[in-house]
């Protein structure tokens, strides 16, 4: 009898330890999500509380399906993420390889590299709004002083340039995550396989492609997983830099949700959109986490 009790207790310990974490997430995330799922089936408006009990089924979602603005924003968000993450990965890899080769002053470089990570996204937004400002921004001032252009380039007004600017800001903020983790990967890389490959006659590219890159991938996946947890932080940047404008030309899913939900007070509709964006983030996280687990298993075999 006593034995059964102790073994029950042993099985219960981890659950007790995790209970606060689980409870917090259920209360702050799951419960609101259930609630917002409900509202996404209603025409709920903040200004008219009674609409909360007015079930209209899938109408919000159906409206969404035929809402061109939504789909454009959706597509733009996916494009934004695809470009930003790939650029961040490649840049991060480049930076990591570069810093790994620099011996003198490496610590300093590494520290500087972490600099953007501690910036609040909202601050990054303002910072680049300041820098890309067509009138007083340092970028236009510099270009004009150097005589590269004689007129103010409308960085945040022209649709393409605005998109470029927000991606630039996003990349500036988040490349460090990749660079730092990949650099940690490079530091942790065992020397033997590299040397063995060189002895086997691999050239520099082959060594990189077949030895280093596979070893670095788990680190890249950690970075991807971490990034995927808060890709939506880009909302802060965009909200400040362009607010989705001009005329909706940099509208991302997240700015659209804010506009529909808070500015237009159409909570039901906004929640339906929010569900789509949540799904996007969750799938993204899930995908990279699976990749990470798989890569980890494969690394475990190698060690």
């Amino acid at each position: 009898m006593a034995r059964i009790l102790t073994s029950r207790r042993a099985a219960l310990t981890p659950l007790l330890l995790l209970l606060p974490a689980i409870a917090t997430m259920l209360f702050v995330v799951a419960l609101p999500l259930v609630f917002s799922l409900w509202t996404s089936f209603t025409p709920y408006r903040l200004t008219r509380p009674d609409t909360l009990y007015d079930v209209i089924g899938l109408r919000n979602y159906i409206r969404l399906m035929s809402d061109a603005a939504f789909w454009v924003a959706f597509g733009r968000t996916v494009l934004f993420l695809a470009i930003a993450l790939n650029v961040e990965f490649l840049l991060g890899l480049g930076i990591a390889l570069l810093i790994n080769r620099i011996t003198w002053g490496q610590r300093g470089l590494r520290t500087i590299m972490m600099f953007p990570m501690m910036f609040s996204p909202i601050l990054v937004g303002f910072q680049f709004k300041f820098i890309f400002n067509d009138n007083i921004g340092i970028l236009n001032n510099a270009l004009q002083s150097l005589g590269l252009t004689d007129q103010a380039i409308p960085w945040l007004v022209d649709a393409r340039l605005a998109m470029f600017s927000i991606i630039f800001a996003e990349v500036w903020m988040s490349t460090s995550v990749f660079a730092i983790l990949l650099l940690a990967g490079l530091f942790a890389m065992p020397r033997d396989p590299l040397e063995a490959a060189k002895v086997d006659g691999c050239n520099a590219w082959q060594v990189f492609r077949h030895i280093m890159l596979p070893f670095l991938m788990p680190f890249a996946f950690i970075a991807m997983t971490i990034r995927s947890l808060d890709v939506a932080r880009a909302y802060d940047i965009v909200a400040v830099m362009t607010g989705g404008g001009p005329a909706g030309r940099t509208e991302l899913l997240w700015t659209l949700i804010a506009r529909v939900g808070y500015d237009n007070a159409r909570m039901g509709q906004a929640n339906a959109m929010a569900y789509v964006s949540t799904l996007l983030s969750v799938l993204f996280t899930w995908y990279f986490f699976r990749k990470l687990v798989a890569a980890r298993r494969y690394m475990g075999g190698a060690q």
């Binding site: 609101p32 999500l33 917002s36 909302y235 997240w254 949700i257 569900y275 964006s277 949540t278 996280t285």
Partner: peptide, 10 residues
């Protein structure tokens, strides 16, 4: 991973 802005509504 739930986006802050999406969570903020409910």
């Amino acid at each position: 991973a739930v986006p802050g802005i999406a969570l903020s509504l409910p």
